[in-house]
Design a protein around this nucleic acid. Structure first.
Lengths: 181, 181
DNA sequence: TAGAGTTTGTTCATTACTGAACGAAACCGG
DNA sequence: CCGGTTTCGTTCAGTAATGAACAAACTCTA
């Protein structure tokens, strides 16, 4: 990873936080590129230097969060699901405003799918259907089943404004994962 | 006032706030240009593009506050001293962290003098020693007398961490000014 | 649906900022 | 007092961001 010009990092950072705060105020469709550049205090053209359009911007923004979750996953892949889930839920908690915004906003389905795909990918490489409790169950089915369940619970947790701590969430989810994977 | 490139404004803003926060942590003499550029997330050379050195930077920073006070003065020059002082003290209050930092830090004497000079200048053009209560008193003396008194009280107010509200400060100062100018 | 006004996406020349490098000055521990 | 290290102030070629302009697409509303 070669060193990136700080101007690029600063511009992108400003643009991304501008989009996030704007999404807290109105729907993505009602946000113009001008709105974003104004809020980011950046020339309108600068946005096009880094992103195709606002959807690409949101896409990359979500992608970065998924990447960070993936990193967390890799750095704790030796752990059991219970502990790995704790690491995840801790991240959810620290990024609460972002995730709840993503799940609550109009763009929710898009984010949901990105998150689902991410989990499917992660679960797949940690799985073994050739023995044990899952003998006879198709990998594709098991993975989809579990990932959907996972997303559903996380989504519910955010939509209900953290009805309990992220530690409890992790405990419950962890137990259910152990049972199924 | 022609429109300034936003890059200039952003750089200068970052550099100035970097200096202010650093001055809250250590003495100006212990702050290096590198410290400032790191904190501002700006190339070291960029600082030299705008300022001669850290003293010039502080100088310009103080100057801007004096300019703002001068503007306040002009936009309310029709007012009596009591009301004009209220406008001043309100500004002191909103910029509390900056002013108390300036008066508390090692560079205090320098700031004090800038503030004193500013007041002397302002008082001088509002003054009339050819009649009334000040007949016979030299302008130079009266102006210096009053400005020093003013600075002394403001300094005391900041050093003692706002022993009372800025409104009270303005009332008291205003009354004393009316008596002397 | 016509037409006025936005928003978009792109181009262009200019400007500010960048990282890297450098010698010179200042600082500091032995 | 010396030699090593830090900080300074400056140069440089390269790059990112800028404001202005433009035609095209889109969105109102009359």
């Amino acid at each position: 990873m070669t060193k990136v010009d700080r101007r690029i990092l600063k511009s992108q950072e400003a643009i991304k936080t501008a989009l996030i705060t704007l999404m807290g105020e109105k729907h993505l469709d009602d946000i113009t590129i001008q709105d974003i550049s104004d809020r980011a205090n950046v020339n309108r053209g600068t946005i096009y230097l880094h992103y195709l359009d606002k959807y690409d911007l949101l896409d990359k923004l979500i992608g970065e969060h998924m990447d960070r979750l993936r990193e967390l996953c890799e750095s704790s892949c030796r752990l059991e699901w219970t502990e790995a889930t704790l690491v995840f839920c801790e991240y959810f908690d620290t990024q609460y405003s972002f995730f709840s915004l993503m799940l609550a906003s109009k763009g929710a389905p898009y984010f949901r799918n990105r998150f689902l795909d991410f989990l499917i990918e992660e679960f797949r490489c940690e799985l073994d259907v050739t023995r044990g409790k899952n003998l006879g169950i198709k990998e594709e089915v098991l993975v989809r089943f579990t990932a959907s369940a996972y997303v559903g619970v996380v989504e519910w947790w955010f939509m209900n404004e953290k009805p309990f701590s992220y530690r409890e969430l992790a405990e419950q989810l962890g137990a259910l994962l152990e049972r199924n994977l």
